[in-house]
Write a protein that binds this DNA or RNA. Structure first.
Lengths: 188, 188
DNA sequence: CTACGACGTAACGGTTGCGTTCCGCCGTTT
DNA sequence: AAACGGCGGAACGCAACCGTTACGTCGTAG
C-alpha cells in the first residue's frame, strides 16, 4: 500500500544524490530531504542504505539493454558503441557508474550487484556479438572474446568516463574501424 | 622542524586509508589513529583533508614515470603496457585510482591535480610514442594521437581497474599486437 | 462514517568527525 | 642548564547522521 509517487520521488532523489556526492557520502537524511519525504517513508521501504541503493540502481541498470543485431559485425559494433557512449555521456550515469565501480572494489555486495546489472548484460552481449562475427567469417577463428570485450568497451570507457573528453562526430566510426582492425590483428 | 618519520607514517596511513574506505569516507581522525599519531601532528602539516590527500597522492603519482624508448613502436607499446599494468595491479593503486577518478568527476580541484599527476605524464608520453612511430613509418601519417591513447590505455584500464579480471601471461603481448593493428586500420 | 495505514514532522539517544585548544612530555638547540 | 617546539593525549563545542519512536493528518477502502 506504499504510495507509488513517493517511491518514485525517492528513487529520483537517490540517483541524483548518488551523482552529486557519491555512495560514500550519501546519507538517508539527505535523500529524504531531497525527495521532500520523511525518513520514515524510506525506512518503510528499505532497511538500510546499501539495500536501498542496490535495489534502485540495479533496477535502473537492468532496464535498458537493447541488443544489437544488424547482420554484420561492423554494424553491430558501431551500434553497441553508440549505445554505450550514449549511456556514458548521460550526466547522471557518467557520475554514478565510476563511483559505484570504485565502491565495488571494496564492497563485495556492490560488486556482485553491478556484475549482474552491467557486466552480465553488456559483456555477454558483446561476447555473443563476437561469436556471430566468427561464425560469419568476419573475424578469425579463435578470436578471444574477453580480449574483444576489453577492446570494444575499454577505449570508450576510458575516454568518456575517465578522461572525460568529448568525442568528435566521427569518433565512434573511427574507433569501431580501429577495433575491428585490432581483432583481425590479434594473435589467435 | 616537523619530524620526518611522523610525516612518513601519516603518508602511509593516508594511502592505506584511501585504499580501504575511499576519499569520501576518509577521516582525519582515522588517519591519525592508523598512523599512531595525534591529530595535531596532521593539522600542523596540512590544513584540511583535501589538501592533505592531494599533496600526498600527487607526490606519489609524479614519482614513478619511466619513459619507454626502445627504438620501435612495438617495443615501446609493450613496455608502456607493462608499466601501466604493473601500476594497475598494485593492490593499493588499483583501489585508489578508480576512487579518485570518480571523485574527480565532482571535485574540480581533484580533477586538476589528477590531470597533472597522471594524464600529463602518461598521456603526453603516449602521444610522443605515437609521434615517433609515425616518424619512423611504423604508423600511418595522420594517426590520431588521442584515439591512440584511448586504444592503448583504455582496454588495460577497463580490464584491470574496472572488470578486475586477471590477465594471462601473453595478454599484454596479444593486446599490444591488437592495438598496433587497430592503429593501422584506423581511418586517417 | 469509520477504521486503517501511509504520510510528514519532530524528537530521541548515540555515534562519528570536524577543527581547535590546552596540557605535560621529551629531544634538540643554544 | 634553560628555552624552544614538535609530540601524543584529552577534551572542547558543534554539526551531521544514524535508526527508532510517537504523534497528528489525510486519503482511501470498507
Amino acid at each position: 500500500m506504499l504510495r507509488g509517487d513517493i517511491t518514485v520521488a525517492i528513487r529520483n532523489a537517490v540517483m541524483n544524490e548518488l551523482a552529486e556526492v557519491g555512495y560514500g557520502r550519501l546519507s538517508i537524511e539527505a535523500v529524504a530531504r531531497r525527495a521532500g519525504v520523511g525518513k520514515t517513508a524510506i525506512y518503510r521501504r528499505w532497511s538500510n542504505k546499501l539495500e536501498m541503493v542496490m535495489e534502485i540502481v540495479s533496477d535502473v541498470a537492468e532496464r535498458k539493454v537493447p541488443l544489437p543485431d544488424t547482420g554484420s559485425f561492423a554494424g553491430d559494433l558501431e551500434l553497441l558503441m553508440m549505445i554505450v557512449s550514449k549511456a556514458l555521456q548521460h550526466r547522471i550515469a557518467s557520475q554514478i557508474i565510476p563511483d559505484l565501480m570504485a565502491e565495488a572494489a571494496r564492497n563485495p555486495q556492490i560488486a556482485e550487484t553491478l556484475q549482474r546489472a552491467l557486466r552480465t548484460h553488456q559483456q555477454s552481449l558483446a561476447e555473443k556479438l563476437v561469436g556471430q562475427a566468427v561464425t560469419r567469417g568476419e573475424l578469425p577463428e579463435g578470436t578471444d572474446p574477453t580480449l574483444a570485450v576489453d577492446l570494444m568497451l575499454g577505449p570508450l570507457y576510458w575516454r568518456l568516463a575517465i578522461a572525460r573528453e568529448p568525442i568528435a562526430d566521427d569518433y565512434l566510426e573511427r574507433l569501431s574501424a580501429a577495433v575491428t582492425g585490432a581483432l583481425r590483428a590479434a594473435l589467435p
